[in-house]
């Protein structure tokens, strides 16, 4: 039998085979490029953004304080950003969950995550002892740490996978089209 036939293959002797790196990579690529995985990540990312926006929509003044804490932007633009950003998050998050305008929503989400990552990285580098403002506007909530940055980068990588592999196989439009075809075929 060809040695290295599949990473989980057990030969007749019952001894485990060594994992063949080529097959392992092929399996990994197949897993990552699975449209179902991309759709699951899309919905998860959408939910993350919707949840993140809720407190900020309810407390725009506190969110403006959080943005000011980063000491990154001129103060005149802070209120405008505090008003618009949460709504942008909730709208793009909803569209991602529903699978509508997937690539546009993913582009916005990845752009936001890149901006957040830069803001967090510079705050950590400058030693600013502030809360992230990612999910809560309370300045006394958990202070930002390296894990905050790591999570942003993880979500950014989800966005990349969604951009590359999600073609809307599991989306609202697909579902509605299927229902339409079922109805017309009756």
């Amino acid at each position: 039998m060809d040695p290295g036939w599949g990473p989980l293959h057990w030969d007749r002797t019952g001894r485990s085979r060594r994992v063949n790196p080529k097959n392992f990579l092929r399996t990994l690529c197949r897993f990552i490029s699975n449209p179902l995985l991309a759709s699951v990540l899309r919905v998860a990312l959408g939910v993350v953004f919707i949840v993140a926006s809720l407190d900020k929509i309810q407390n725009p003044e506190a969110f403006a304080t959080t943005i000011a804490n980063y000491r990154l932007l001129p103060y005149k633009v802070i209120n405008g950003i505090a008003i618009v950003l949460p709504w942008l998050e909730v709208v793009t998050g909803t569209l991602l969950v529903l699978g509508v305008w997937i690539r546009a929503g993913t582009m916005i989400v990845c752009g936001l995550l890149m901006v957040f990552s830069i803001a967090i990285a510079q705050a950590l580098a400058r030693g600013l002892d502030i809360s992230c403002g990612c999910f809560a506007t309370n300045p006394d909530s958990e202070k930002m740490s390296l894990w905050t940055l790591i999570w942003d980068l993880i979500w950014f990588s989800w966005g990349i996978l969604i951009w590359v592999f999600d073609r809307g196989h599991y989306s609202l439009f697909k579902f509605l089209n299927m229902r339409k075809e079922e109805i017309t075929s009756l």
Binding site: P60, E61, A64, T65, A68, N69, Y75, K76, V77, I78, N79, G80, A82, I83, L128, D129, I130, P139
Partner: peptide
Amino acid sequence: DDRLPLIMPFPPAYQCP
């Protein structure tokens, strides 16, 4: 009712820390 002004007034009341 508690709308936020579009431009943050100076002096900014939100300086932290």
